[in-house]
Design a protein around this nucleic acid. Sequence first.
DNA 1: CCACCTCATCGAAACGATTCGACGAAGCGA
DNA 2: TCGCTTCGTCGAATCGTTTCGATGAGGTGG
Lengths: 349, 349
Amino acid sequence: MATIKDVAERSGVAPSTVSYVLSGSRKISDETRGRVLEAVRELGYHPRASARTLRSSRSSVLALAVPREAGKYRAVDGRFAVEISDAARVHGFDVLLMTDPDGVRGLRRVAGSGLADAAVLMAVEEGDPRVRAMTAAGFPVALLGHGDARDETEVPWVDLDWEAAVALAVREAAAAGHRHIAFLSSAEHEITSRRGYALHGLAGARRAARQTGAEVTVRASSEDPGVAAARVRELLAAERPPTALVVQHLIPLPQVLAELSAGGVRLPEELAVVPVGTIPDESGLPELPRIDLPVSRMAAAVTGLALAAAEALPPSGGEPAESGPRHELFEPRMAAGVPIAPPRTPNAH
Amino acid sequence: MATIKDVAERSGVAPSTVSYVLSGSRKISDETRGRVLEAVRELGYHPRASARTLRSSRSSVLALAVPREAGKYRAVDGRFAVEISDAARVHGFDVLLMTDPDGVRGLRRVAGSGLADAAVLMAVEEGDPRVRAMTAAGFPVALLGHGDARDETEVPWVDLDWEAAVALAVREAAAAGHRHIAFLSSAEHEITSRRGYALHGLAGARRAARQTGAEVTVRASSEDPGVAAARVRELLAAERPPTALVVQHLIPLPQVLAELSAGGVRLPEELAVVPVGTIPDESGLPELPRIDLPVSRMAAAVTGLALAAAEALPPSGGEPAESGPRHELFEPRMAAGVPIAPPRTPNAH
DNA sequence: CCACCTCATCGAAACGATTCGACGAAGCGA
DNA sequence: TCGCTTCGTCGAATCGTTTCGATGAGGTGG
């Protein structure tokens, strides 16, 4: 493998000159530059990342902490990972995938060893130990999703506005003519442990109910898809059943749909189902009207925040620039393509 | 940030001694070792990855080339990425995510700069330029999936045995009593460009037809989900329609199911659908009998092959060990849980 | 008592880049 | 013609490890 010294010898200059040609940080005569660049091409020279990092203490690597509890994997995480990698490349950064179930240990190692300049933490939950560990270590991070607990206000984060998202779904259903709308919210344990997105979703449903005057029946979902499906069946068995169903908890959705279908419920004529927070392009679900996550934009934003935080540290360690920690809440939109079907017997107005 | 020198000073030894304590590559008295380890703990010392890599020219990083054509993203890729990261961690390796649409450029950069010691290439296609580029550069790689073209026989790879997988699906359907089975194979363009998995799938269907004596009707799928769905409708409109449908091309599956359902076809009573090659745990589809990809085992295998290839190079550059390039074809199994429903009016035997 | 060996530790030389100060050669005005 | 500035390039120090040979203390056998 060619080194900078080889390039220097072949082009008859000093190694430092080669470095200046490549970095452009000092003026070099056109003639010399030409010789050097030719030698670089002939030798297929690539600077060693390790030498560069050792000298400059900047790695141009962004660590990405993917949540990994008990071997579970959510499709949305993979999608975000790829999008964040794309966004990082635009800034000249590579992405290091961290899937350690003990996220704190992996992050500490990466931060301590200088493998990465900053980290994006995915799926942060209230009081997440990873956030504390990283801020304590003074390592630049940005959070993706669910981050608005008290100790997280000093750290930049990006999230979907879940309240607005659920409210939008309910309003759109109402606009399609539905007067009785069911809302399958987050799982019980997410509500009782007061996860931000769970509470926000509930608030959004209430708000939209007030605004539209539609009747909105709320049911908590469950970790067990069978239980969730049972709750939906219950709703439909009521005397005046809902004609639309807004779903925030996506995990049991396939089974809910399957059971409804098996139970003879015609979709969407008898029940218009509107999931909230799905991945665009490939949900694996039959096509439904839905509220999509703006994955690309959120990924670009959180990457930008993480890299900005990384830049803010090195120079003199002074105040982290004046822009301070930044937060970004994304407005939901309805996915284009499939409109919400009107109820079969609309309660006309 | 503490360096090895700080640790040495605090424990009253030379830096080299600290290094020997940490690496264990020379014997150090228990007393000295104790003092050093204490200093390490007190200072929270982590070796700089860059310095270590510079000196040893081993980075303990595995590059992972994720296919990324035209912004498309397949859920299965994310799943493999996470599993490969898990497998790499077991060997003390981190994973660098490469999502460059021009895979060759990104890989060249990583190989040339010494950012990684080896690479796993996902979704390799016949005559993939990435494979040529990496073997030309002498960079150790292992391939995941679809790799059995001629120039790829020298490179280790791992794949699902698609012929066996489709054959298994057909045999299981036949065993459930189905005598007329449809097979929705890969998309036309995959067949005409002779992709390995496409041809193998077709061969598997033919083989199972011979073995079971069942009638197997083959239809190519299409990139356009609407076209694929139309072909399935056509099949069902035949005089003697199939009672089971084996599907290799998963992309249009949601729409196919939706249209069947909308068209009044009762699943699985009128048509038992069996997808091949889905992701376990979270397909996003309603629960169907299916042939799953053994993602974890394939990820572990391909990771092992890539790291073995990396080890084989450094020492003297001699013959790449005696084990040579290795290939591993995985046997499919039916996912547990959902059996294939028998036909409504079984052609009893 | 001396030569020799083992054992634990040390010192110094890499690894390959970046970057600061220095330095010679021109160019310029006086 | 002399001193001063500008321009292009060089040399050397530095980043933090690993690892090879050296070194000195202590033990052993003849």
